[in-house]
Every structure is written in C-alpha cells, then in structure tokens.
Design a protein around this nucleic acid. Structure first.
Length: 217
DNA sequence: CTCCCGATAT
DNA sequence: ATATCAGGAG
C-alpha cells in the first residue's frame, strides 16, 4: 500500500469509525440477498420502504419461490425494473430451495450463478453475511475511487480487481461502507460538497476544478 | 452496447 | 427536461 492510499484510508477511518452497518434492512441472509437485488438503480431508502411490507407478506424463501409473478411485480414496483427483478427473485429463490435447501450459498461462483445476482450483489452477501473479504463496486465506489485516483477503470469488474491490489485485505469490507456513506453525505455524483470534504487533498476532480478557476483569474 | 424502469433532486 | 439511484442479463 502506498503512503497516499494509507493517508486516504486513515482519513476515512477517522471520520467513519464505527459506521459499519449495512444500509439495507434485513434480518436473514436471504432477506439481504433479495434487498440487494432490489437495490439496482434505486435508493436504499426506497428499498427499505418496499421490503418492510414485502418481508411480512413473503416471510420465507419458499413463499418467494412460489410467488405469483404478476403479484410480486406489483409488490416491488416502486424499486423499478420490476419485471426483471420479480422474475429473477422467483427463479433465484427456486434455485435456493432446490440446490441449497433454502439457504444462501457463500461462494462467488454459486452466488453469481443465481438469477439476478452479479458480482456486486454476491460481494455484498459475502462481506455482510459471511465476513469474507470482498470489494463491492457499486455506483458510489466506482465514482469515488476514480475521483480519489485509486483506479482509472470504468468497468466495475476491473475496478474491483484493481482495488483488491491497492487496498489491504483487512480494509476491503470497511472501505465499501465508508465510501457509500461518504458518497451519500459529501461526495455526490452531482454537485459534491467539496467545501465540506476532508479528502480534497487527494481528489483529482477537485484539483481539476481549481486549475480552471486559476486560469479564469 | 442496449434494455430494463419508478421516484426524486436539480 | 434530465441526471441519478447500493446493477444485471441478453
């Protein structure tokens, strides 16, 4: 790990010390799996509103596996992409019943083989449920890792592999939740609050912004 | 690369 | 009007 990377991680640790919680409400592994599937291109706040009722109505994996497609679509509609998500949830939970005795598997291969589960969702499960070091590359991690110059890649899988090289393994899971928190509070996609940011010394975009200002003056 | 897609902020 | 939100599949 370079000095620069360590300085960034130290700053993050300083501000987001024990903010280690998952923002998707869940009580079981399969609930987190479904909540994460629903979170694609949707705010976690909305996912939590939907799952609050959803997990009362479907309180077992088996109930999801036997759900009526059209009815489930309506139940999850506010999260968007509801045709695909409903179909995937039914297919995925059927696989859980048939191949895994209704449990959620822990390997990346088994998880990504499930319908509607890609590397991002699989890594959320591995990190949060099984405590396996894993890098979750979502929209926040990708955007902010680029701004901080930790990667130049655009493809989420390449970002994941590069961050695995750059970040110490014992910081992988923590990095995810820190960056998501940072992205929600300060480093927005649109109009980031650079005045309140504690990482401007390491931000490539901030550097660019100041260059342009100086030229104008 | 395109499509899936509703809700909210700007 | 448009960008963005804890992405994934064909």
């Amino acid at each position: 790990m370079t000095k620069r990377t360590k300085a960034i991680l130290d700053k993050l640790d300083e501000v987001y010390t024990r903010e280690y919680k998952c923002y998707l409400d869940h009580e079981t592994p399969w609930q987190l799996l479904i909540a994460t599937m629903l979170s694609a291109q949707c705010t976690d706040a909305r996912v939590n509103i939907v799952t609050k009722e959803l997990f009362k109505k479907y309180d077992t994996v088996e109930k999801f596996a036997n759900a009526d497609l059209k009815e489930l679509e309506q139940d999850i509609k506010p999260t968007g992409f509801y045709h695909n998500k409903a179909k995937n949830i039914i297919s995925c939970t059927n696989t859980l019943m048939e191949k895994y005795n209704g449990e959620v598997p822990d390997s990346l291969e088994d998880l990504t083989a499930l319908a509607g589960v890609g590397r991002k969702t699989a890594n959320v499960i591995r990190g949060n449920i099984f405590n396996q070091p894993s890098i979750v590359v979502d929209t926040h991690v990708k955007r902010i890792s680029k701004r901080l110059g930790l990667t130049k890649e655009d493809d989420p899988e390449k970002v994941e592999f590069e961050l695995m090289k750059v970040l110490p393994k014992d910081h992988w899971i923590l990095y995810n939740i820190q960056i998501i928190t940072f992205g929600r509070q300060i480093c927005f996609a649109r109009g980031p609050k650079c005045e309140e940011c504690f990482l401007t010394d390491y931000c490539l975009e901030y550097k660019e912004k100041n260059k342009k200002k100086k030229i104008k003056k």
